[in-house]
């Protein structure tokens, strides 16, 4: 892609810096690379068609009520290829979006500002932006769970320690968690470590998806420690599965002997 060069003297400068800011300047090349990654994303053309600047997206945006965030601004920055503005928005603003997609349901031009935010989040991760790492830190427990089990949430993760603002009692009937779980009339839910019992083969299949779709690479960029932990678990479970398969072969052999 090409971006139109600014007409002022900055055009030939290699770095762009705010004279009154102490922030490190960002390379023009880096800015262009970021925009390149955004605009070549498979979702991009589907989510951005133009802009009437009508503001219906911001009008209906929950985050705009509480943050310095406006989906219209995101669309405008991308549509006008404002590279500095895009980079700036990726530091904090894109993480304010609540991903409700009301903006997309309302936009008269058929844009999806929420979808564009997702593209920018993916690119922030691809570039290993510090801001993204910061923002994702509290997410690591959930990330570990979903990567290793295919379940986003587990009953034993919801404790008053982790959710003090949800009150002292996770259940209004007092009993050990494992008993309460077994008292759910669905056999698949008699679990503590995962939201439902997940077949071992299912997890193994999921690992292949993580590897072949580039998700593991994303994780490695963002959090190397977490990446190591996840890979260890993956290896372990794959071994378990191999063992089980071998056992089956043995059983089959036994059957043949009979």
């Amino acid at each position: 892609m090409t971006t139109s060069a600014p007409s002022n003297a900055k055009a030939n400068a290699t770095v762009i810096a705010d004279p009154v800011s102490a922030d490190a300047p960002v390379d023009r090349e880096e800015l262009e690379q970021i925009f390149d990654d955004i605009s070549s994303h498979p979702r991009y053309d589907h989510e951005l068609n133009g802009c009437l600047n009508c503001g219906i997206c911001t009008a209906t945006c929950p985050s705009a009520h509480y943050y310095d965030y406006s989906p219209r601004e995101i669309v405008q920055l991308l549509w006008t290829e404002n590279l500095e503005g895009i980079h700036d928005a990726m530091q904090e603003k894109i993480w304010a979006c609540a991903q409700c997609y009301t903006c997309a349901a309302r936009c008269p031009f058929g844009n999806s500002p929420g979808g564009l935010v997702m593209v920018m989040r993916e690119v922030a991760i691809k570039h290993g932006m510090e801001s993204a790492k910061e923002v994702l830190r509290p997410f690591s427990r959930v990330m570990l769970k979903v990567m290793s089990t295919g379940n986003q949430l587990a009953p034993n993760m919801i404790t008053p320690d982790h959710f003090p603002d949800w009150g002292p009692n996770i259940s209004k009937v007092e009993a050990p968690l494992n008993i309460l779980r077994k008292a759910i009339p669905m056999p698949t839910l008699h679990t503590l470590e995962t939201a439902w019992a997940v077949n071992l083969k299912t997890s193994i299949e999921l690992y292949t998806i993580w590897e072949d779709s580039g998700v593991l690479d994303q994780l490695e960029t963002m959090d190397e420690n977490l990446f190591d932990v996840v890979v260890d678990i993956m290896d372990e479970k794959r071994e378990d599965y191999e063992d089980w398969l071998e056992e089956q072969d043995d059983d089959d052999d036994d059957d043949d002997d009979d």
Binding site: C54, G55, I56, T58, A59, T60, T102
Partner: peptide
């Protein structure tokens, strides 16, 4: 007002419109 409104609802007394003053 330069704005396309998102929704028109009612609080039971008056109509409410939700918009952005762009």
């Amino acid at each position: 007002i330069k704005s396309r409104v998102a929704e028109v609802t009612s609080d039971g007394n008056r109509l409410l419109i939700k918009g952005e003053d762009t």
